[in-house]
Design a protein around this nucleic acid. Sequence first.
DNA 1: CAGCCATAGTTGCGTACTCAAGTGTAGCGC
DNA 2: GCGCTACACTTGAGTACGCAACTATGGCTG
Lengths: 161, 161
Amino acid sequence: MAVAAIPAPRQLESWVSFLRAHAAITRELSAQLQREHDLTLNDYEVLLHLSHAEDGRMRRVDLAERVVLTASGITRLLEGLERAGYVCKESCAADARVSYAALTDKGRKKLGSAAETHLRGVDELFVSRYSGSELTALAELLGRLPVTGADCKPESDTPCS
Amino acid sequence: MAVAAIPAPRQLESWVSFLRAHAAITRELSAQLQREHDLTLNDYEVLLHLSHAEDGRMRRVDLAERVVLTASGITRLLEGLERAGYVCKESCAADARVSYAALTDKGRKKLGSAAETHLRGVDELFVSRYSGSELTALAELLGRLPVTGADCKPESDTPCS
DNA sequence: CAGCCATAGTTGCGTACTCAAGTGTAGCGC
DNA sequence: GCGCTACACTTGAGTACGCAACTATGGCTG
């Protein structure tokens, strides 16, 4: 019957904490970014990834994987960032299928100011609750988790060159 | 300027892992539940919380806090579960403002079968990646994170009695 | 009792996504 | 060259929320 079952065994506690904490923190951080900079948390993450990428640009599909969105999700997200002038579309000479999202100067500047807000928030809600060694441990543990159905795929920076 | 800044210091690694892992895992788990049982991850969580509650029912507002949704979010989510017959609305004799969400037999049964899928998924994607002591450590660490702007508030089971 | 603020819940509207179906291009076997 | 599957991306339709504004009730203070 499994009626009285629905077990909430000890091992699941961390899972539950994980769910709840994520929901609460990202909600707050997203609200902060929205209020102060009119950016989503995902918008911010996209700008951040672009800023770290070679030439400040990435293939849309790789970007999607980084922020764990679908192809269509990235299209719409970038739509907004393009409209705001933070990124622009570039095409690839070697492969007409791919188009890049490239960070503009305006976007880089925006990221700089949004980063202040965001880093403060992350620090307050996340980092400050742990010691240095705890953060290291946490990073190691969380790093084992899958990132897509096909698991981790940390580097895919061979676009079409 | 902060242009070259946008620091991705070591301490933020765990934060980034946290974000990505959550997005990837919940996406997969939600897709599983949707495919096999036509339930959202949040639907499932709500049924689960109800099943643990006294008399299988909770105030909507408490439920909202548990699953980290807003009041309106809970209203709409419960709308769906009520339509499906998994929960039903009950009013409170002592306080006409509150209404309960109560688990039906059908809902309990549904939860039982969905739990198999879900627990398998959680185990596969989360639990199995850690040892017992690691899980304990993780639970402790994640348990420190805030759950709302007003922080943790683990027990609020004094509805109107 | 009247007046007032807090609380529980709902509703309108906007948004950030997803999935499925479509377009255009690349690279393959022949 | 002609088809064929694979890929990068876009588009249409639908969904799961959040926020702000609303109603209805409760409890408090005079």
